[in-house]
Design a protein around this nucleic acid. Structure first.
Length: 449
RNA sequence: GGUACCGUGGCGGAGAGGCUACGCACCGGAUUGCAAAUCCGUGUACACCGGUUCGAAUCCGGUCGGUACCUCCA
């Protein structure tokens, strides 16, 4: 079997992947903060690493892969949104989580083995913070914050390759009188008077809530152990989030690593700029689905570039993705998929998740429907029947299938009596309604354009 | 300023010292009452300047340009 090769951010090298425990793989993927609908950038990360998930399941067996994707359900933005909308925090996070899962479902992202919520692991976070304090890596500041003391870790900054001087030279470091060092970051913050009680938890340091980074350190330790195989997320998380996770986990666990391999996907761009919640230039997955784009079309578009490279999201890309899927559905035509995934496609995906290469391989399989289907379904595509793909998905004001069939019958009669004028009228009427007719020896079929 | 990533045909996008993907679009042809779909044919591209080499888009050095990160972010 071909080796799986992955670009490890920690070493900046493509490495052959070997699990810490032979035959068993543990992956932790940073999931969303749930206060709003997921944007396409969130979806990109989920879809990119869903390919990793699928590959690992294929190569190691479903029962040997633990794939964790967390939910951050305690956070400043959640509190702010809750106050702003008048919705209780629990209600807001539960609804947002469900929206997120529904979106991923539309994008054919596999369910994960564990979906820990931060609020369920407060005790583990507190325990870890206590260990960090005991070991001299953290302290309670005069303002009540518990802070990680960055200079206590001599090799801090390995993942992002930053020296502490670089970090301090950065323009946005929050200088606080209570910090011993400007680069120290929060492990636990005290509840403020105007914050709701539902976002506060008892701790040895009084009512408060965890800092963002400690969540992932505590949850990954609980589920995957002190050191695990792969930690993944967007490349905007390299610093400070992942760097700080590493600091906390390694100092608390006294381990040489947190995760052996670190994977980071590139940002989704819109008109040359990063799509992000803070810039407000984002589409939600819901927006695009609502415009009539299929989940599979979005998935193919998101996988059409290499996961590490920036992906410029455009209308043209969506059209291309849709056309490519049309051609695959047509070539497949519902044949029973082959048992094995074609080797060339597997090889491509094993090579640092090279999905564009995998798509190119699928394009060469159009003469072999069984293999084409096996390959595409391995990539999470071609999940519908060809009939549903071509004829489904109409909206309420579109012509119904029955109405279309009736017009096809009328057109067939017109053609039989050589009344081509009427036949063309019907074709034009259907074209207008977004329906394309295809005549063949076996009769007329139709699809929604 | 620091840390990374990137620059490939009209567009998207792999590849990675000699065999020059793949898709979309365009154009021509076959086919069709007209279409659609399909099939056939048409494109020799790697930012720029040097260097290494028998040979460089690929390696090395430099230049220019782009993007991200530098404590909200996937």
């Amino acid at each position: 079997m071909t080796d799986i090769r992955l670009t490890n951010t920690l070493t900046r090298q493509v490495e052959v992947f070997e699990p810490l425990v032979a035959g068993q793989v543990g992956v932790y993927l940073c999931g969303p903060t749930v206060y709003d609908l997921a944007h396409l950038g969130n979806a990109r990360s989920a879809v990119n690493f869903d390919m990793l998930h699928r590959l690992l399941r294929h190569d190691f067996g479903v029962e040997n892969v633990t794939f964790v994707r967390n939910i951050t359900d305690v956070d400043d933005k959640i509190i702010a949104r809750s106050i702003e909308s008048g919705k209780p925090i629990g209600e807001l996070t539960a609804a947002s989580t469900q929206d997120y899962l529904d979106d991923l479902d539309a994008l054919s992202v596999l369910g994960v083995t564990n979906m820990p919520r931060a609020t369920e692991y407060i005790a583990e976070m507190i325990a870890m913070i206590e260990v960090l304090i005991a070991k001299g890596h953290a302290y309670v500041a005069s303002d009540g914050n518990v802070l990680f003391h960055v200079p206590s870790m001599p090799d801090y900054g390995q993942l992002s390759r930053r020296s502490q001087d670089d970090i301090i030279a950065g323009a946005r470091v929050e200088i606080s009188a209570s910090k011993r060092d400007a680069s120290d970051f929060v492990l636990w913050k005290p509840k403020k008077d105007d914050e709701p009680a539902s976002a506060a938890f008892e701790s040895p340091w009084g009512l408060g809530r965890p800092g963002w980074h400690i969540e992932c350190s505590a949850m990954s330790k609980s589920i995957l152990g002190d050191v695990f195989d792969i930690h993944a997320g967007g490349n905007d998380l390299i610093f400070p989030h992942h760097e700080n996770e590493i600091a906390q986990s390694r100092c608390a666990n006294e381990s040489a690593h947190m995760a052996k391999t670190w994977l980071h996907n590139g940002m989704l761009m819109v008109e040359g700029q990063k799509m992000s919640k803070s810039l407000g230039n984002f589409f939600t997955v819901r927006d695009l689905l609502g415009q009539g784009h299929r989940g599979e079309t979005l998935r193919l578009a998101l996988l059409s570039g290499h996961y590490r490279a920036p992906l410029d999201f455009t209308q043209a890309k969506l059209t291309e993705a849709k056309n490519r899927l049309d051609s695959w559905y047509r070539a497949w035509n519902g044949a029973t998929p082959a048992t094995d995934v074609p080797a060339a496609v597997l090889t491509a995906v094993r090579d640092d998740l090279n999905t564009p290469q995998a798509f190119a391989e699928i394009d060469t399989l159009k003469g072999n429907p069984a293999e084409l289907a096996a390959a595409a379904q391995f990539l999470g595509l071609l999940n519908l029947s060809p009939e549903d793909w071509f004829q489904g998905g109409g909206s309420a004001d579109d012509l119904t299938a029955d109405a279309i069939d009736a017009l096809i019958v009328e057109r067939a009669d017109a053609k039989k009596s050589k009344n081509f004028g009427r036949a063309d009228e019907i074709r034009d009427q259907l074209t207008e309604a977004g329906v394309v007719l295809e005549d063949s020896a076996g009769g007329t079929t139709w699809r929604r354009g």
